[in-house]
């Protein structure tokens, strides 16, 4: 741009202030956050590549090794809901925590704090963005599952409730981590907790695969989410007890986060 063209632009700077309607602000925030999440290579790896690899690897290796779970049904029918649960966990917990940690660090939350977007709108936008990303994940993982021969039961209510309450519980816990630790510590903690829960939290594998530890794992948010998702897609039922566990985690996480979260 040369200076002459710059001078040619006459802006009407006269004050005409006002915030956009709340719903439009929330939508703008949600689409912005979803785009940033889907564009970020590391986040995409965590959100899509790792779950798909686990699904394909788990099913093919399990078949080769004639892996026997106590559940006699096909491995792909057991694994796919578990991997969907893993994807919900990775987005709602790990991705959200890391993104929010760096938003605090880079002053994004502070800057948005001076915009017409209220904190409730910021939070709603984040949740909406998570749900959008998770929808993409579920479509991709479900599609890969179908290619591997997945035949889900139509437990729509159970699945929707599992995604909703799983998102609430893990997002509250993710914000708890992001709101209290520094960005780098959040990055490390969110990844570590994700790996521990993925390996030992009864999310991909059913609690029956964990022996006596399964009784502990089902009270973890990961185990509850995994079981609720498996009930929905394996039996077409609603796992009220597991959804109750998720609700407790969501309430606990939210009240702790509300008490400790620092916006800057």
């Amino acid at each position: 741009m040369t200076d002459t063209t710059r001078d040619a632009v006459r802006l009407d700077l006269a004050p005409h202030p006002g915030g956009a309607p709340f719903a439009r602000q929330v939508l703008a925030q949600a689409s912005m956050e979803a785009r940033l999440m889907l564009r970020n290579g590391e986040q995409l790896l965590l959100a899509v590549v790792v779950p798909v690899l686990i699904l394909v690897g788990g099913v093919t290796a399990g078949e080769h090794l004639s892996l026997k779970l106590s559940d006699p049904r096909p491995l792909v029918d057991i694994f796919t809901p578990g991997v969907i649960a893993l994807a919900v966990m990775s987005t709602s917990f790990t991705s959200l925590a890391i993104a929010t940690g760096f938003e605090r660090r880079y002053g994004v939350i502070k800057r948005l704090g001076a915009s017409p977007l209220p904190k409730s709108g910021l939070l709603l936008g984040k949740i909406l963005a998570l749900l959008c990303v998770q929808l993409v994940q579920i479509i991709l993982i479900g599609g890969v599952g179908q290619l591997l021969g997945w035949t889900p039961k139509a437990g729509v209510l159970g699945a929707v409730l599992a995604v909703a309450l799983g998102t609430a519980a893990f997002a509250a816990l993710g914000l708890l981590v992001a709101g209290t630790l520094r960005a780098e510590a959040t990055l490390a903690a969110a990844n570590l907790i994700y790996l521990l829960l993925m390996a030992g939290g009864a999310v991909v594998l059913p609690i029956s695969a964990y022996g006596s530890f399964g009784h502990v794992a089902r009270w973890l948010p990961s185990g509850a989410l995994g079981e609720a998702m498996r009930s929905a897609f394996l039996d077409g039922s609603v796992a009220w007890r597991d959804l109750g566990v998720l609700t407790v985690w969501a309430v606990l996480g939210t009240s702790l986060t509300a008490r400790t979260f620092k916006w800057e």
Partner: peptide
């Protein structure tokens, strides 16, 4: 807030935006 414009000292945007 809607009536006020704020320019902070440095940062205030996502690194990848």
């Amino acid at each position: 807030l809607p009536r006020v414009g704020v320019m902070l000292q440095g940062q205030g945007a996502w690194s990848g935006v």
